[in-house]
């Protein structure tokens, strides 16, 4: 330890220990997130098993084009995110900023499409609540499908919004030149978070949009 890095906190011995601790902490947090969404997935699984027809009906109301495009957009944002991490490891300041910005734009696109979808569904009276209307003898069960649709995609979108905030903060810091090849932990950690949010959507897409298409 000839020269201590400015980003080294007092209670760590060196940068390696700090990086390892931070990464492990992020993974532990993601475990928590898996089980947080897991509670909703468990609910989905139960009602899907109980009311398969209603879930097929509900799924038919969703627009597969929106879902598929959003999947592609989110996968694209994962690519730009991982490239931001890549250039952070190489310490190329402008490229970090550029790819963070690209990720932010793609994330914004996803949320925009989601907002359009939401407004269609709410307009069609598919938001569970007093205004819920669905013309079917099993409308109550379809309502449960839409409860899960809104709860799961809503929680997912909330995570995206948090992610967008984190990306903006990273961009500011990257612009200031805080990240280089010797210190880029925050970029890497936000990357992990962002990919996790992507994974949640990778499961939500088939479970909500694709079932009962045939």
């Amino acid at each position: 330890m000839a020269h201590e890095h400015a980003a080294l906190q007092h209670h760590f011995d060196d940068m390696d220990q700090q990086l390892e601790a931070s990464t492990l902490g992020m993974w532990a947090f993601l475990i928590t997130e898996v089980l947080f969404f897991g509670g909703l997935f468990a609910g989905y699984l139960i009602y899907r098993t109980k009311f398969p027809e209603a879930f097929d009906l509900g799924s038919h109301e969703l627009d597969i084009k929106f879902g598929a495009i959003n999947t592609a957009v989110l996968i694209g944002s994962s690519l730009t995110m991982v490239l931001a991490v890549y250039f952070a490891q190489l310490g190329q300041r402008m490229k970090i900023v550029f790819f963070l910005f690209a990720t932010l734009v793609l994330g914004g696109t996803f949320l925009g499409i989601k907002a359009v979808e939401y407004s269609h569904k709410i307009h069609d009276g598919l938001l569970p609540g007093p205004g819920f209307t669905f013309d079917s003898p099993i409308a109550d069960q379809v309502r449960i499908f839409f409860s899960f649709y809104f709860a799961m995609t809503g929680l997912h979108a909330f995570h995206m919004i948090i992610g967008a905030g984190l990306l903006s903060w990273l961009m500011y810091n990257a612009w200031q030149g805080k990240y280089d090849s010797s210190y880029n932990t925050p970029v890497e950690l936000v990357g992990l978070y962002w990919h996790f949010v992507d994974i949640v959507w990778i499961f939500l897409f088939p479970l909500l949009y694709l079932i009962g298409r045939n």
Binding site: E33, L35, F36, G38, G39, L40, P128, G129, I144
Partner: peptide, 27 residues
């Protein structure tokens, strides 16, 4: 902890929006 957090969140949503997830009357 996250699982009970999700469960409590669902209670909140059910009370606010009438989801019907836990209400036998609504299936």
């Amino acid at each position: 902890t996250p699982v009970v957090t999700a469960a409590i969140m669902l209670i909140g949503l059910e009370r606010l929006f009438g989801f019907g997830i836990f209400d036998p009357k609504l299936g």
